[in-house]
Design a protein around this nucleic acid. Structure first.
Lengths: 214, 214, 214, 214
DNA sequence: AGCTAATCGAGACGGTACGTCTAGTCTTGCG
DNA sequence: CGCAAGACTAGACGTACCGTCTCGATTAGCT
């Protein structure tokens, strides 16, 4: 039976200092060379205080970036919905391409992915707190399109999302090809062809197909 | 100016011992806990001999698994081509799903991906020696299908490959969903819808489209 | 600005373990083949703990033997004083000859001398903590003899000590000749001739000469 | 049975290069940090060539300095002999003091002494080739003085030499006191008192005493 | 002059130890 | 009790040398 610390007595000042130091150091030396020691020293905190509250280096860094996202809590996560699905998706995909090219995002996101690959616990947290909400927003937009008959009525939105994003993500992660706006457009077009309603099927969208997952 | 060792004098016996030790240790302790010291000790080799010929731990492990692939040099890399594209792809995709579920592959491949994400040099090697040839074989099959009019004449095979594999790869890497044979089938079906020739387009297959990349 | 460790928090248990291990290993493998790694391993101590508190291998070994001397703090350092200077000195010198012949002393003392020759810092420590007190005891005996008119009133005790001991020490260190009791006797006799009061000088012992050094 | 190399085929050019490199490196980095690898590299020589002809680092350095001495083969080793023993010895001892103070001699000589202390083989070589001839020259001067009745007829010259030089050598080696011309003079005076002929003994020098050693 | 055997420069090898760094635990006062 | 501070055991890091061991490429003497 492991002794659990009492969260009520936790020092908020230390917590903030640690997260801030973690963020700074990721930018300065990169994730791979980031050490708990350095975070503790920078934060003016005992190492034990970190080990007490976080299970791993990855968890600290994840928290550090979560804290950023939560800072602006009511950030508009909803995707644009002008009615023109193709145009909306291209905007979003091009934005994603641009984001991936930003060197300020590059480092930390690669770092997190590194940890997530090998740590299922961390991966679950990551999905629950960061990726999940974003994906949900994306699915909302697709759901809206499906309701409007722009996507097949029986479209699996999880698979749809993967079809749209996974190629982009993979290209970025493995550096297996150039990330250009044209590539984003091409992906959207493929996606739409794959997901468009079957021509021979007279559907009016949502409700007629089999129930989707989630 | 860095002094380069002379490859002609390299000890093949040591090279093999190191690669074998690396493979064994990855299985025994996992990639994260793998140390150069342990490899050297297991291989009965001086540490310097590893540092002399490999730039990083990742490079050793990559070579270790490359050596495996090269061991069977004429391994049939060609994909099945029965003429039935959908059936052929489903077979291949289901096999990939099975492979990803094999715990013996799981560890090392995750490990390699971890390193590849953060090390562009390693990534390039990986693509050139492992992923590249495999991808080429896959593209051969798709090219054959395109020639047969089963895919759009102007289909970009690189993008096609990503469309087909990236969702699977991402789900496995991030553990973001179950990898089932049904999922493999669904991916193939989506892929075919996205890539099928335009119905209103009267094509005679290969030669009419613009030249594809590579 | 180098960070200095806080001696108040030093682990006495570790310190003792290190000194004991050092002593044992000097006997087992000799000083030249003694390594910090081996001391740390034998003592069950992290290498850093040695590097934290000692600047060099020599310093550890010096401390190890100092600790032995200090173990018996009130060891009678005073030389015999029967009033017969020649007899007393011969006893002491013969004892020194015997000590130098003891193989248990041989190794470590040679080792310390090796280091002391090349490391002025270590040499100063050695003189302050080991050689100094012993020399002082010897000078006490000579001072007593000078007071009794057995040595020249203006005899320089430092030089006297060197005259008496340096030939013995040099013969041992450089192995330039045999160390026998007869040799010890001969040295004492030479020493007494060199240091005896001048015959034509009417002295009343201590107080009449110029003040000696120290 | 160890294979012995054939000295006839030895490369004189390599030998010189090695000795020169050794000398240079002792001056540049000091004896302790001198490595066989560095000597070989500097000399443009394979390491094996050093290991083939010398048994240890110390042996190389000893040879390096021997070579220097032999360069001027007919160097006058004889000490001055004006008939005034005291004056002659003071000149010589003051010169020795000056030599020991020369930083160019300091390093290498300390280094050699370090090795000699721990390596009896090297010590023997050192005495035979370097110290021996010098000591013989000194003993020649003392023998001349003894013949002239300035020293006791039965004086042991080996012991005499030690009495005269060991204090100086020890002070220098252990840095246990200042080396001044006055100190040199004081030593000579002590020496003469210790070694002067017995007043009650009517001797005419050489021949009347018991035969000396060597 | 050609042959042959040893030495040469070069440097890779299996090792040992270095001195540094970080992980994760433990200890000591302070608040 | 949580905290900052930091010493502790443990052990990997990457480097420097050790002394041995091939490699060709000279380079002697000997035939």
């Amino acid at each position: 039976m492991v002794k659990q610390p009492n969260p009520a007595r936790r020092s908020e000042r230390s917590r903030q200092a640690i997260l801030t130091a973690a963020r700074e150091l990721v930018h300065e030396v990169g994730y791979a060379k980031l050490s708990i020691e350095a975070i503790a020293a920078r934060a003016g905190v005992g190492k034990q205080t970190i080990y007490r509250w976080w299970p791993s280096k990855g968890a600290v860094v994840l928290d550090a970036f979560l804290a950023l996202s939560e800072a602006g809590p009511e950030r508009s996560m909803a995707l644009p919905d002008t009615g023109d699905l193709e145009a909306d998706l291209k905007v979003v995909m091009r934005a994603t391409v641009a984001e991936f090219a930003d060197p300020a995002f590059e480092g930390p996101i690669r770092a997190l992915n590194t940890e997530i690959i090998n740590d299922p616990t961390l991966a679950a947290q990551y999905r629950a707190k960061l990726a999940g909400p974003v994906d949900e927003a994306k699915k909302d937009r697709l759901r809206s399109a499906r309701r409007a008959g722009q996507l097949a009525a029986d479209a699996d939105l999880d698979l749809a999302l993967e079809l749209l994003y996974a190629p982009l993500y993979q290209r970025w992660l493995l550096r297996s090809g150039p990330l250009t706006p044209e590539y984003a457009d091409a992906l959207v077009e493929c996606f739409l062809k794959a997901m468009r309603p079957d021509i021979h099927q007279f559907t009016d969208g949502e409700g007629s197909g089999k129930p989707e997952k989630q």
